[in-house]
């Protein structure tokens, strides 16, 4: 059975292994034991933090388990960048027009901005490829079920950076055309630098004036707002949730940065609270649902067959046990995108 729960210190080796497998481009999941350990500790204290708007440093790390084995990890940062500015390029259109000359041109410009600083951020996502289907959806959306249940802990807007295009050797056409001019580092080396220095620290060395996209080579232009094939599935899940792809890109690899209003996400709008009823035999109307309990430190989400009728959800004993719930307890549930 697949389930999602908060990460624990004991998960460190498993998370380190996932971080290592995630490779280039998932900078929010550095393959660095000390950093990962610190994140788990931060996560543990964040889950214990009172359910208020919070201080901003909160970081909630989750793991995806299959029958007790960790096969994926994902996180929510309460405030992107936290105490540092969070840099991204905003896609802008300038119209260069002249009535006298009968010229009307739309020019695509990338403007360095801090627009996304302090927004809620979905980050640190990686799942073993064999679980990327429903497992990936459960891991990704369990975070949104958690946000729905812990709404006070989170602000209004949410973002998620998608891994941008790069080749097998980790070289990024966007970086090569832009960032590389400002550093003597290739993309792989920059990824390394993110581990020892914060991303904002490095962002401050990037060009601060707007970049006219037509001046970039074709390969770099083609990489703007694109998503690496490894992240396509995640991107698809979040797009269906209502995230928008077009507004911001990562300043390093040009990958799409998705943005959304939290309260308008599918999971927030369509998830239902229901009381648990234990059944031995599932009714014919039963179907797969993403189901979570309403706890914080004891948060669990799972994917299970259930029947929903008039605010009552029928679960089998195994599912209830996985969620640490008994009859009469509340759950939050939503239908999966995949069936």
């Amino acid at each position: 059975m697949l389930s999602v729960r908060p990460a624990r210190t004991a998960d460190l080796p498993a998370i380190e292994r996932l971080a290592h497998d995630s490779g280039i481009g998932v900078t929010s999941l550095p393959a660095d034991r000390e950093k990962l350990f610190a994140r788990i500790q931060l996560s543990l204290s964040s889950f214990e933090h009172e359910a208020t708007a919070g201080a901003g440093y909160e970081y909630y790390a989750f793991v995806l388990e299959n029958d007790g084995q960790v096969v994926g990890t994902a996180a929510i940062a309460a405030s992107a960048g936290f105490d540092e500015p969070f840099y991204s390029y905003r896609n802008e259109i300038f119209v260069h027009a002249s009535r006298a000359l009968k010229v009307h041109n739309r020019v695509h410009v990338l403007s360095l901005c801090h627009d996304l600083s302090g927004l809620v951020q979905l980050c640190g996502f990686y799942v073993d490829p064999e679980y990327s289907g429903l497992g990936g959806e459960l891991l990704s959306r369990a975070r949104l079920l958690f946000i729905a249940g812990q709404r006070l802990r989170f602000g209004k807007r949410i973002i998620s950076e998608m891994q941008g295009l790069h080749d097998d050797k980790g070289q990024s056409p966007f970086w090569d055309a832009l960032g590389r001019l400002f550093f003597d580092l290739d993309f792989v080396q920059v990824e390394q630098a993110f581990i020892t220095h914060s991303k904002s620290f490095i962002a401050e060395l990037m060009p601060s004036y707007p970049i006219y996209v037509p001046l970039l080579p074709d390969a770099a232009q083609d990489a703007i707002s694109q998503v690496h094939p490894d992240s396509e599935r995640t991107c698809q899940i979040l797009s269906r949730e209502g995230f928008e792809l077009d507004n911001y890109i990562d300043i390093f690899d040009g990958g799409a940065v998705l943005t959304a209003d939290i309260d308008r996400l599918q999971t927030l709008e369509h998830s239902r609270l229901a009381r648990v009823e234990l059944v031995d035999q599932m009714p014919a109307s039963a179907k797969q649902r993403l189901i979570s309990n309403e706890r914080c430190t004891g948060y669990v989400a799972t994917l299970a067959s259930s029947a929903l009728d008039n605010g009552v959800i029928s679960l089998d004993a195994d599912t209830a046990a996985a969620l640490s719930l008994g009859a009469g307890d509340w759950v939050r549930c939503v239908e999966p995108q995949l069936s």
């Binding site: 260069h96 027009a97 002249s98 006298a100 000359l101 010229v103 041109n105 020019v107 410009v109 055309a177 832009l178 001019l181 060009p207 004036y209 707007p210 970049i211 006219y212 001046l215 970039l216």
Partner: peptide
């Protein structure tokens, strides 16, 4: 008409490296 033409040019600085 140089002014007309100039007003269509990019207003932000252009990095020569690009």
């Amino acid at each position: 008409q140089k002014t007309f033409v100039a007003e269509l040019m990019p207003k932000h600085p252009i990095y020569i490296d690009l």
